[in-house]
Structures are given as C-alpha cells and as structure tokens.
C-alpha cells in the first residue's frame, strides 16, 4: 500500500465535491435569477438578489479552496459588504420615493391643482414613475 496513490485519491475526492457544489449552486443561481425577473413586487426582486449574493459568497469560498488562492477570501468579504450595503440603501431609497409620492398626492388633492400640471411634474421625476409602473404591474398580477 503506497501512501502517494491514496493521497491522490483523497485529492480527487476533494476536487469532485468542490465541482458538485459549484455546479449545483450555478443551477440554483439561475433559478434565483428567474425569481428576480418574475417577482411581482420590488421586495421580491430584492430578496432574490440578496439570496444570489449569499450563493455567490459560498461559490467564491469554494473557488478559493479549489484554486488554493487565499486572496479570493478577501474578495468574498468585500462582496458580502457591498451586497449588504446595496440592499439597505435600495430599500431606504424606495421607501423615501414612495412616501414622497404619497405626500405629493395629498397636497394635490388639498389644493386642487389641474391634473395636467401634476402629470408634467411627474414626468420629470423618472424614479417615481418607475416605482409607480412596477406597483401597477404588481397590483395587476396579484
């Protein structure tokens, strides 16, 4: 019984399990992407993107062990930070846009300004319009 051959078998086992993890996670990532495109509401998309971030983190760590390059772990840490920051900022910004829109509507009904002027001001704010269309699509699907 020589040690060398058994070690190579162990290496092969390590590599095969890494490849299995990578392939399965790739398929799951694709499914998450489908949910992110389909998701009727904004929160759906954000949840799917957050999940994709988690899976990519595991993939990066597996790659770091498979390629034996420890600097990939640094990149994984940065990826985790940026995905966290992105989700927090996006949700805050969407809440802000929604409340701004609600307040604008209230002031419009109070003062009774002509509808056309309101639509013109709305066209200027593209982000508000986007959120509105998404909301409409979500309501229709539900």
């Amino acid at each position: 019984m020589n040690v060398k051959e058994s070690l190579s078998v162990l290496d092969k086992a390590y590599q095969s399990i890494f490849w299995v993890v990578l392939i399965v996670l790739a398929v799951l990532l694709f499914m998450c992407l489908i949910r992110a495109i389909k998701g009727p509401r904004v929160a759906d998309r954000l949840v799917a993107v957050n999940m994709m971030g988690t899976m990519v983190m595991v993939m990066i760590t597996v790659l770091a062990l498979l390629l034996k390059e420890s600097y990939l772990l640094d990149i994984g840490l940065i990826y985790a930070m940026v995905s966290f920051l992105a989700v927090v900022m996006l949700s805050k910004v969407y809440i802000g846009i929604y409340e701004e829109k609600v307040r604008k509507k209230e002031t419009v009904t109070e003062t009774g300004i002509d509808k056309r002027a309101v639509t013109e001001t709305k066209v200027e704010n593209v982000a508000v319009k986007e959120a509105e269309t998404e909301q409409k699509a979500g309501n229709e699907k539900e």
């Binding site: 805050k92 809440i95 802000g96 846009i97 409340e99 307040r103």
Partner: peptide, 12 residues
Amino acid sequence: DRAFEPKNDTIL
C-alpha cells in the same frame, strides 16, 4: 434631509 426616509431605525 431624510424627511421621506425611515428615521432613527434602532436595529440599523
């Protein structure tokens, strides 16, 4: 400036 944003979120 954060008139339209959730303010003083203790968890965050």
